[in-house]
Design a protein around this nucleic acid. Structure first.
Length: 807
DNA sequence: AGCTAAAATGTTTTT
DNA sequence: CATTTTAGCT
């Protein structure tokens, strides 16, 4: 009796001891294993840690902490031993406590949904770390984004709702071209109804799980929506006929699968006993429905989120999902994590100052034990060029003065277009940098083309991809012939490729074109055959060769373009080779899925020593010691489209909150007097979000280049900080750059293909001076990424590029 | 069919 | 302004 009581108390103390690096709220979250759990986690409050530790806890100890079960082998001796265990090392204690485990969950019963694929990988890596080895078990945990997890389900059971296992995913631009096609077929004039808006209305409808009929009935008298519903209906039937899913379908069709097929739902509900969802504030209705379905049996669902960081409304995210979580799940336990471990007090107070202007928040007060830190620097510059130079100068100054490597700096902006001016400045001052976003690797034309071939090999009814590459390189199947073929195909109920195989039967197709079509089919046949017995990388190489695409690229007259494209194709083969190596059971189909679902941040490599540039959206979940926020102007951030709409302004403000809270030590806000946008010069006032930061937390200066003045809004700024020092080193930002010490002594070491290391300074005959950013082994050669002073980031092959090392 | 040159057009954020 | 679409020519 007393024995039992003492045992339970000792047991809990030992667990508290095991997790003594967490705060009490975090521990409570880890222990809350069963039942619905909502964690309201402020920025930098260690939510990922909690997520990871909780999953590890569930697998290792189950509900051991809360359970009042007393094993019959408990006696005085055991209690004595337990008292001693308090002094064990963490590892020993962790191992010791396993004997008290109650109702442990097998790793395969855990599902963790994250916002990026990268985060999914990190969760597994961190759990492996906790378990002390890369165990077989950890790999059985299912982690991924909503999209990747749903794809997995659809590959398994998609046939039940009419999808072949080899379905392909079409991205936004593929789906745009299909919608355009549908609108043409329905004789809808693009002038009255833009493809873009149709696409977005359809997408939002799918986020809400609306079918074309649902949309139509919702339309009422709205002619525009009625038209869209008509397009949606055709678009959807064509997607289905081609075994294609767009991004929204991946979720929506999974929900349909789980709704319509009880046996599948039952199977998955029973399998996933423990479900966690990260970044819950950015889920849409379809995703909410999905989590409700999956967690329907056990109701062991934990969601983590922060209503102040909801920034994906444009993608259908509904903040109500997190606000009303406890209404969807009765007896929800709510835990708030409000202690911030990331930022200085100044940064935190600045962020709080901004976000407090929003209404309708759940409300929370972030606090930190860390020091005050430095003031937020707000600087006005004449234009974007000066803005870029200024950022470079601060980076080079700070990196030297404080011995900070470049990876500690991030430049976060509202839109991708802002990156250009900053990139140029960085390239000039030879600061190594990396740009995430903008044109994704897989969105490059040549990469998309080859991937389209692969998609056709994998899923021959994919007419969208077929249209894209049927005449690239030219093979005499022009737009007109293809049009005729697809009209015939639609009439006869074939896929276009099938029809092309028998093109000669149709008099409407010219004999020349028919011959070319048949040859094309044979080409695809042979590639398909080849793919059965070869790796993905080999297949890609074969595609590039056999289709004549490689030759076409080799014949590009302009040198830079030719090199750029061929190096992209090499990189594609390289990526596939990596995939072949890493994947358990590599298949073309799975490779294509990965290609479709990777995001930019997934490829962000923290180990590369380079300044990183990305949008604030991409930076969600990341942190950096020093953060630059350029373009803090009305009309840029908040964007001019949002200024009239209070709701959208609130979303922009949340974005500003996310931006500021990325920083650990310092924030540099810049705004410019005149900015070139869309060919026009604009004079934007400083962003309201910068003004909302309490004045005493800021240090405001204006660059003196065009005369002007310096003013301190903060009356009592302690002086002495010299990072912002307008006149001295302004013109030459490369003073502290990696090149500076080499520019005078230009003694080069002429060696054809010596091995280069990361950080080496090199000279290229074409591009001039640069720094090696990364080196990757690739088919007996080495692929270097080099940032050049004048030309920015280039990818070069070791043997081919004739890079000379400079000392 | 395919090329070139002129015209139109669009501009947030992303899986 | 920078990309994409179209018209007109070969």
């Amino acid at each position: 009796m007393d024995l039992a009581k003492e045992f339970l108390s000792l047991k809990r103390k030992l667990f508290d001891k095991l997790y003594d690096d967490l705060n009490s709220k975090q521990r409570e979250a880890v222990y809350s294993v069963n039942g619905p759990l909502l964690i309201l986690a402020g920025a930098g409050s260690g939510k990922t840690t909690v997520l990871v530790r909780r999953i590890a806890h569930i697998i290792r100890y189950g509900d051991a902490y809360n359970s009042s079960y007393v094993p019959d082998w408990i006696n005085e001796a055991v209690l004595e031993e337990m008292k001693k265990a308090a002094d064990y090392s963490k590892d020993d204690l962790a191992a010791y406590l396993i004997r008290f485990a109650v109702d442990r969950a097998p790793a395969w019963s855990v599902l963790g949904i994250t916002f990026t694929n990268k985060a999914a990988g990190e969760i597994k890596a961190r759990i492996s770390e906790i378990f002390g080895e890369v165990s077989e078990e950890v790999s059985e945990i299912t982690t991924g984004t909503f999209h990747s997890v749903c794809c997995r389900f659809l590959r398994m059971y998609g046939d039940k709702i009419g999808y072949d296992k080899n379905f392909s995913i079409c991205d936004t631009s593929d789906s745009k071209s299909l919608i355009t096609d549908c609108m043409n077929r329905l004789n809808i004039d693009e002038k009255n109804l833009s493809v873009k808006s149709v696409q977005s209305i359809i997408s939002r409808a799918k986020d809400k799980l609306q079918t074309p009929d649902d949309l139509l009935s919702e339309a009422g008298q709205d002619i525009k929506i009625k038209k869209v519903a008509e397009v949606y209906s055709l678009y959807q039937s064509r997607l289905e006929a081609q075994n294609l899913l767009d991004f929204d379908d991946i979720i929506m069709q999974t929900v349909r699968l789980l709704t319509e097929h009880e046996e599948v739902r039952e199977k998955l509900q029973s399998k996933y006993r423990y479900i966690s969802v990260d970044e819950y504030q950015d889920t849409n209705y379809a995703q909410l429905k999905l989590t409700l379905l999956l967690s329907g049996k056990y109701r062991n669902i934990m969601v983590v989120g922060d209503d102040d960081q909801s920034i994906y409304k444009f993608r259908g995210a509904v903040i109500e999902n997190i606000l009303n979580f406890d209404k969807n799940y009765s007896d929800t336990k709510i835990i708030r994590l409000e202690e911030n471990y990331r930022s200085t007090q100044t940064i935190l107070n600045a962020a709080n100052g901004v976000i407090s202007n929003n209404k309708g928040r759940l409300g929370k007060t972030l606090w930190t034990q860390s020091e005050k830190g430095e003031l937020i620097s707000i600087k006005k510059l004449p234009d974007q060029v000066a803005e870029g130079k200024y950022i470079c100068r601060v980076i080079s100054d700070t990196s030297v003065k404080e011995d900070l490597s470049f990876r500690n700096f991030a430049v976060l902006y509202r839109m991708n277009a802002q990156s250009r001016a900053i990139e140029q400045a960085l390239a000039k001052s030879a600061i190594p940098y990396r740009v995430l976003g903008g044109l994704r690797f897989f969105d490059r034309m040549e990469v998309k083309d080859i991937v389209s071939y692969l998609n056709i090999i994998n899923n021959p009814v994919d007419d969208v991809r077929l249209k894209r590459i049927v005449n690239t390189p030219r093979r005499g199947i022009g737009a007109k012939s293809f049009d005729v073929a697809s009209t015939l195909a639609a009439a006869e109920g074939y896929s276009v490729l099938e029809l092309m195989r028998n093109a000669k039967k149709y008099p409407a197709i010219s004999a020349v074109a028919a011959k070319a079509m048949q040859d094309f089919c044979y080409l695809i046949d042979s590639l398909k055959e080849y793919s059965y017995s070869h790796t993905t990388a080999e297949t890609i190489a074969k595609v590039i060769d056999a289709t004549g695409y490689g030759e076409m690229v080799a014949d590009i007259p302009e040198r830079t373009e030719r090199e750029e494209r061929s190096s992209n194709l090499e990189e594609l083969i390289n990526t596939a080779g990596q995939y072949d190596e890493d994947a358990e059971d590599p298949t073309l189909s799975e490779f294509l899925e990965e290609v479709a679902l990777v995001s930019d941040v997934d490829k962000y490599d923290e180990s590369a020593d380079a300044v990183v540039l990305m949008t604030i959206h991409s930076a969600k979940g990341l942190e950096f010691p020093v953060v630059f926020l350029p373009g803090m102007e009305e009309g840029v951030f908040p964007g001019y489209q949002t200024i009239m709409n209070p709701e959208e302004i609130e979303e922009e403000r949340r974005l500003a909150y996310v931006a500021i809270t990325r920083a650990k030590k310092r924030v540099y806000i810049t705004h410019v007097g005149s900015r070139m946008m869309n060919g026009k010069t604009q004079m934007n006032p400083i962003s309201r979000f910068a003004e909302e930061i309490p004045a005493e937390l800021t240090e405001r200066t204006e660059d003196e280049q065009y005369g002007a003045f310096t003013r301190n809004r903060a009356a009592f700024v302690s002086t002495g900080r010299s990072i912002v020092n307008p006149s001295s080193s302004y013109t030459r930002s490369s003073v502290y750059s990696p090149f500076s010490s080499h520019t005078k002594s230009a003694k080069t070491t002429p060696q054809a293909s010596e091995k280069l290391d990361i950080g080496d300074n090199v000279i290229h005959s074409m591009f001039g001076k640069g720094v090696v950013l990364s080196a990757k082994e690739m088919g007996g050669d080495i692929l270097y990424e080099v940032v050049f002073e004048e030309h920015g980031l280039k990818k070069l092959m070791g043997t081919y590029a004739k890079l000379k090392k400079v000392n």
